[in-house]
């Protein structure tokens, strides 16, 4: 089932300069009870974004009118913890298409790639320069160029290359999905299944 293609994204960014942001913060477990993938954006960072009486916390970046954009920028080890894909659904549903960090947790990175969010891993230095630029001017735009595997600060012209598996890159550019690919191999899979040892 195809998802939105990703080629070049130009956008301002929302900073979240916190390390080890785990998936329980991205979407607390009590919001995982849906049987369909909709409405998760409302509860993105629920307990950091809202007080217990549901009023917004003014100092949280997503509630700060200065910041907007389709790029979320956060500290190292983003997405650690639970495998819940609801975390990336919430990020996508809120309107982000790209997450930038200096380090991503493994399952989170896969989940992003599987639904069409681009996880961009940059050096700690580049990450700090992004935070600095956004802090100085919240309208700073960044270009995330997937075909060239490059992220560019359009204000300072600083840029950095990022890595992505070539197969996944091709999938994202074309909006292809792994399951379509695998369904074409079902005959081979059945042959393999018959000779597995257990």
């Amino acid at each position: 089932m195809a998802y939105d293609k990703f080629e070049v994204l130009k956008s301002s960014a929302v900073p979240l300069p916190i390390e080890n942001v785990d998936t329980d913060q991205i979407i607390p477990a009590r919001f995982l009870k849906a049987t369909e993938r909709k409405g998760f954006g409302d509860n993105l960072f629920r307990d950091w974004r809202f007080n217990s009486d549901d009023t917004p916390k003014a100092d949280f970046p997503l509630n700060n009118p200065r910041f907007s954009g389709k790029i979320l920028v956060s500290g190292k080890n983003f997405g650690s913890g639970s495998s819940r894909e609801h975390a990336v659904w919430a990020i996508y549903d809120y309107g982000f298409r790209c997450v930038v960090s200096s380090f991503f947790a493994d399952i989170f990175r896969n989940n992003c790639l599987n639904i069409g969010i681009l996880p961009v891993q940059v050096s700690p230095e580049f990450l700090q320069s992004m935070f600095k630029s956004i802090d100085a001017n919240e309208n700073t735009e960044f270009e995330v160029n997937l075909p060239e595997q490059k992220i560019i600060n359009l204000e300072t012209n600083e840029s950095e290359s990022f890595n992505i598996n070539p197969y996944k890159k091709d999938n994202m550019i074309n909006g292809f999905d792994d399951i379509d690919y695998l369904l074409n191999l079902v005959d081979d899979i059945k042959v393999f299944a018959d000779k597995t040892p257990i």
């Binding site: 894909e85 990336v88 896969n110």
Partner: peptide, 16 residues
């Protein structure tokens, strides 16, 4: 694994 991968394994008994 994530839910997209759950679907993948249900459908194909494989994961990438």
């Amino acid at each position: 694994i994530g839910t997209s991968e759950v679907e993948m394994v249900l459908a194909t008994q494989c994961i990438m």
